[in-house]
Structures are given as C-alpha cells and as structure tokens.
Design a protein around this nucleic acid. Structure first.
Lengths: 161, 161
DNA sequence: ACGCCTTGTGTTATATTGTTGCAATTCTAT
DNA sequence: ATAGAATTGCAACAATATAACACAAGGCGT
C-alpha cells in the first residue's frame, strides 16, 4: 500500500504523481493521452472517492467539453486498458490506480459512509489466481476484490454524535 | 469447494439441496419463503450461470406471475439477506450459494465464455478481512472477490475449432 | 371467527448506468 | 499534401435499478 487515504495527506501530490505516471506510461505504450482522457483522469484523482461516469459527464459538460455518455465511457475504457484506473463494480464507479506500471489483481476497501476507496496491495491475492487455476484447471484473466465497511474517521464521527 | 461446476454432475441434486437448505434456513430465521421468492431461487439454481434480474423477470412473466422489476428485486434482496444467493456485480447477476448457513466472504470464478460461475471457499480470504482491518483500522462488513477467465471446457472447445 | 397489524406484492412511473452505429474530425506517417 | 487510422460528436436506445403508493395476504391476540 503506497499510502493510506484515510490519513491526512497532501493530496495534490497524489494527483501530480498520477498524471506524471500516466504521461510516461502513455508515451511508453505509444498511446495518446488526449484532452478528454487527461481531464477524466484528473477528475477521478481529485478525490479518493470513486466517481461515476455520469458524475464525470456532468463536470465535463460544465467545462465546455460538450460530451455525451460515449465520450466518457471511451475515455474510461482507455484508462482502464492502461491500468490507470480501476472500476469498482459494486459502486459502478471508477478510481485512480497507484501503480499502473505492473499488472496486479485489484483489491479495494471502500468506506460505506464517506465513500473513500483505499487500494490494497495484498500479496496473498497474487497467489489466489494461481491457486484457482490449479484447483479448477482454468485460466484467470481478471481478479477484483472489493471490501466495504467503515473507515476510522467515520467511526470517530459516529461516536461524537 | 463443495463441487466443481465445470465437471459433469447431477444438477438436480444441486437444486434439491439448495431448496432444502433454503426452507430450513427460513424456518430457522422465521422468514417466509413465499411463492415468488421460492420460484426466483429455483430459477437461479436451474443453471450455474448467474442470472440477471430482467432475465428472471421474463421467465416469471411467462409463468403468470405478472411481475414488475420491483417484484424480482425484492425477492432477490430477500434471498441476498439470507445469504441464499450472491450478487456478482461485474455481471449484474445473481447466483446460488452453496453454504448459506455460515457467513463467508464470497469468491467466484466466472468463465468469460460459457458464463458458468464456481464459488470458491478460499480460506485465505477469511484472513484478508482481518488483515485489512488491522492495517487500516477499519471495520469490514462485506467482501467479494470476482475472478474471470476461461474454464477447462471452453479451452477444449477453442482447441477443437 | 373477527379485526388489527405487519409483511409482502402489484402497479406506474422514473432514475441511473451503459451501448450501438454512423458521421465528422483530428492526428500521424508517408 | 494526403491516405489511413485513431479519436470524438452525436442521436438514439438498451439494460439495470429504484421510488412511491395502493392493495392483498398472513399471523395474532381477543
């Protein structure tokens, strides 16, 4: 885990690093980080709360992008392909990835109260795919673990009331 | 893992056992396994392919239940609450659970080709929640792991072509 | 059995999320 | 410059899920 989103941190660093990584990754792969794609990535990184496609759409609209749903979904597909964002199916939402360089089974904890998502680099999960492949004789292409519950901050707030 | 769905098996046993477990679980919990709820559960168990809500809806309609989306979603919510089915978010679909008695972190492998889903009782996953709780100071309420790929049968078919 | 209350269902409408298909534009390499 | 590929604009639509309120069925004490 590169960082704990439930702890206070200088969030602009998160964003800056993410954009830098995105640029170099795109260059490396010969992919084009266009205006829409870049803006979508920035918006996703503006908080640690996973964002929905239509939420992104609304913001882009305010900014004069004049987009329709496909615009956003295409940008998201692009970012997903490069591993720059993950999709949290249980929320129908998207969140930035901290280490897009290396492919990895995704694992997230999401606070049911504040909505912030923390990615986890659980090494045990790396092994899970191999285990399942042996056990069932299958080939695993994707793996996603989603945990949900209450984060420390929201526990605290609940007590104070 | 109680059984491998990618191996041939007498599927009527799957269904029968599932219904029996459901009945006794409902009795035990003082819950009412009504007509709609029972029928939805049966339909979900008719195959190992997770079913969508509207797929269920269509079948119920043919059977004279005269249902609307809320009917199905309410039945599904009921079954989910009791742990009789799991929801696979990546597919927006529902699949029967083999051991609803004991609460457990769900883990599924789904074949991208044939769609069949195999539940896995990965004991490593039991530990994951506790690990995450310690690491982040959070409280975990739900946990779902979804793997996807190709099952042995579909690999074979691909070769034969 | 009767009424009463709780639970479950029917019904209509609507919200949210995601896709298809095609035209227009922009970029890139020759 | 220009052909070809990639990207975006655009309109319609499909799929999934929920809200709100009325009605019915079943359990329970009297």
């Amino acid at each position: 885990m590169s960082q704990n989103v439930y702890e206070p941190h200088n969030h602009s660093h998160c964003v800056d690093h993410a954009i830098d990584r995105a640029r170099s990754l795109c260059e490396q792969r010969g992919a084009r980080l266009t205006k829409v794609r870049l803006r979508v990535l920035e918006l996703i990184w503006q908080s640690h709360k996973p964002m929905g496609a239509y939420e992104l759409l609304a913001i882009l609209a305010q900014e004069g992008f004049n987009p329709a749903p496909p615009t956003v979904y295409r940008a998201l597909d692009f970012l997903l392909d490069l591993g720059l964002v993950h999709r949290l199916h249980s929320l129908n939402a998207f969140v930035g990835c901290n280490h897009p360089e290396d492919q990895h089974p995704a694992c997230f904890f999401v606070c049911e109260q504040c909505g912030k998502a923390q990615e986890l680099a659980a090494d045990k999960l790396q092994a899970l795919s191999r285990q399942v492949e042996e056990l069932l004789g299958v080939t695993v292409n994707h793996q996603l673990t989603e945990l949900s519950g209450i984060c420390p901050g929201c526990k605290q707030k609940a007590l104070e009331q």
